[in-house]
């Protein structure tokens, strides 16, 4: 790019990887070791017997923890904290859940279609009492499709940065500044892919609309849950979850 130096791109790439490493839990090696540690039949049944409200609270709790890590990832990204505060909030409000969904592929075992949840790997059936079978299935399908790309940690890191720094989000005040940062991230990502002979990856990434659809589906299901359990949300859901989705 004529607008940024090679050194600048190099620093940005290092920064994306470091931000990702410092804010992704558990580490990749640990996930690899634990990927066959699944819930027993009895444990799955115990989750299935939980009331819908309790299961929603648990999932909202885990999701909120993941989102807090995404906020930290954003804060460490070169250039993010130089954006105006309105735009930081706009990008996180629109993109945090999408980043969590991308990050989820790290903790997903495509061989038995399970995901790390509260300490062990769980299949879709564990989430039955949530009452949103279709949404859970779609999220698992998405994780499965990302796993099929066999992404490296560096590729996950760049994908997350690119999902977050999106100049097309509505209500941005300094759209051009966000677009410039996004452009630099794309240059750095392409450079990484060229070096690792993975240029073909870009054409195989899921379309952005798929992430957007999953996030809308989550909000719709939350609204359906609230109609069933009016008053449940203020009491037991994390305040950050309510702020982002309610």
């Amino acid at each position: 790019s004529p607008t940024c130096s090679g050194m600048e791109i190099e620093l940005l790439a290092q920064d994306v990887l470091r931000s990702h490493r410092e804010t992704s839990q558990p580490r990749a090696e640990e996930l690899q070791q634990r990927r066959w540690d699944t819930f027993s039949r009895e444990e799955v049944c115990a989750y299935q017997r939980k009331p819908m409200q309790e299961m929603w609270e648990r999932c909202a709790g885990r999701l909120t923890e993941a989102i807090q890590h995404v906020v930290e990832f954003a804060k460490r990204l070169r250039g993010f904290m130089e954006l105006c505060q309105n735009d930081q909030i706009v990008l996180l409000k629109a993109g945090a859940m999408e980043v969590v969904l991308v990050r989820m592929c790290r903790a997903f075992n495509p061989d038995n279609r399970t995901v790390l949840f509260e300490g062990k790997y769980a299949g879709t059936e564990l989430f039955r009492s949530l009452g949103c079978h279709e949404l859970v299935g779609s999220i698992f399908d998405f994780a499965q499709s990302l796993c099929a790309l066999r992404l490296s940690e560096s590729e996950v890191a760049f994908l997350c940065a690119i999902v977050l720094i999106n100049a097309n989000r509505p209500w941005l005040q300094e759209q051009a500044k966000v677009a410039r940062l996004r452009g630099r991230l794309e240059v750095a990502f392409r450079l990484l892919l060229r070096r690792t002979h993975r240029e073909g990856l870009l054409a195989r990434l899921p379309p952005a609309g798929r992430l957007r659809a999953l996030c809308s589906q989550h909000v719709e299901q939350l609204q359906a849950f609230r109609r069933l359990h009016p008053g449940a949300l203020p009491a037991a859901f994390p305040p950050l979850y309510r702020e982002l989705f309610a």
Partner: peptide
């Protein structure tokens, strides 16, 4: 900003 009080706070904190 009042509507996004917690997000605002997380962004303000050095390390949250």
């Amino acid at each position: 900003q009042e509507k996004h009080r917690i997000l605002h706070k997380l962004l303000q904190n050095g390390n949250s």
